[in-house]
């Protein structure tokens, strides 16, 4: 066997360097800074700092409030991921079958994708407003007093609805194109084998869609964990009080609003480890079962 190689040993290094520099400057350096400052308590203006060992971490481990936020984050992430993928899949399968006016239909479904998360949050905040929100009025019509910003469960409900609504179009686009890339021959062969639409979907279509779905799963978990920040910020109006928040939002309230640099650095290190673990796990456990064509 012949090994392809560069004749000059420095050439590959030079080619890799730009990428490595970017990763170092934008990832390793800030990550290192975060780890370093998580062992200190610092004056916000940078005048004094005290080494406190693992104190910032043990404090998090002991905090029941932090545990509560982590619990909500898990619940929120699972629900947002499941719902936005599930609903998008349903819509994509149905849209795939539409023949007349297909383009209009798809465009309408993708529209929401153009809305920025804070704008989505703002729309949500308006629709769910305690005093003037139409959705609040709708619930009141059915005899339920919806109180966003006051009732923990109501606020959680509104956050999940807005976050899912925002994410469905992205999933829809990917799933639809995934569906359309399944060869007609395969579908027709399946149709001869089995008349049941449900069976054909789970036996043929879904496995062939799996690479797309796996990619979307990762994207969606990341979305629910991090990109929903804008939605949450607007929904709690910058003042979380007893409302549900996610781990990322807590990093923001403690670090940016509260100027507690050490404490919020420790929290972001925890998040970093979490994401790392999650990604490794996903690829180890799930990717093996997926067949790329």
């Amino acid at each position: 066997m012949k090994r392809a190689a560069f004749s000059q040993p420095l050439m590959p290094v030079a080619l890799l360097l730009p990428q490595l520099i970017i990763i170092a400057v934008f990832f390793y350096w800030p990550a290192g800074e975060a780890i370093y400052s998580s062992f200190f308590l610092q004056d916000p203006f940078g005048f004094g700092s005290n080494y406190v060992g693992a104190d910032n971490y043990t404090r998090l481990a002991k905090s029941s409030e932090y545990a509560k936020v982590a619990g909500f984050t898990l619940f929120f992430t699972v629900l947002v991921t499941f719902l936005s993928l599930g609903i998008a899949l349903l819509l994509a399968v149905k849209a795939d079958k539409v023949i007349r006016g297909a383009k209009t239909y798809r465009t309408l479904l993708m529209w929401v994708y153009a809305v920025a998360p804070p704008v989505a949050g703002f729309l949500g905040a308006l629709l769910f407003d305690q005093n003037i929100g139409p959705i609040t009025d709708l619930f009141a019509y059915f005899g339920y007093n919806l109180q966003i910003g006051l009732n923990y469960n109501d606020t959680a409900f509104a956050m999940i609805v807005v976050s899912v609504w925002k994410q469905i179009p992205v999933n829809f686009i990917f799933l639809l194109s995934g569906l359309q890339s399944i060869p007609v021959a395969v579908r027709e062969a399946a149709l001869i084998d089995n008349k049941s639409g449900t069976r054909r979907f789970w036996d043929i279509t879904f496995p062939l869609l799996a690479p797309t779905a796996f990619f979307l799963l990762i994207i969606n978990i990341t979305y629910a964990l991090f990109d929903t920040f804008g939605v949450i910020d607007i929904m709690v109006k910058g003042n979380p009080a007893s409302n549900p928040i996610t781990l990322v939002y807590k990093v923001y309230t403690d670090g940016f609003r509260g100027s507690d640099l050490g404490g919020s650095s420790a929290q972001s290190v925890v998040l970093m480890v979490l994401v790392l673990a999650l990604t490794v796990m996903q690829f180890r456990m799930l990717e093996r079962r997926i067949h790329y064509t």
Binding site: L150, N151, Y152, N239, P240, A241, S242, T253, D254, R257, G258, S259, D260
Partner: peptide, 21 residues
Amino acid sequence: GFYVQIRDVMNREYTRYLTGE
């Protein structure tokens, strides 16, 4: 110091108390 966070704690606990949590 860290009074912004103290206010956040107050708001959180007051709301929980007032809503019966």
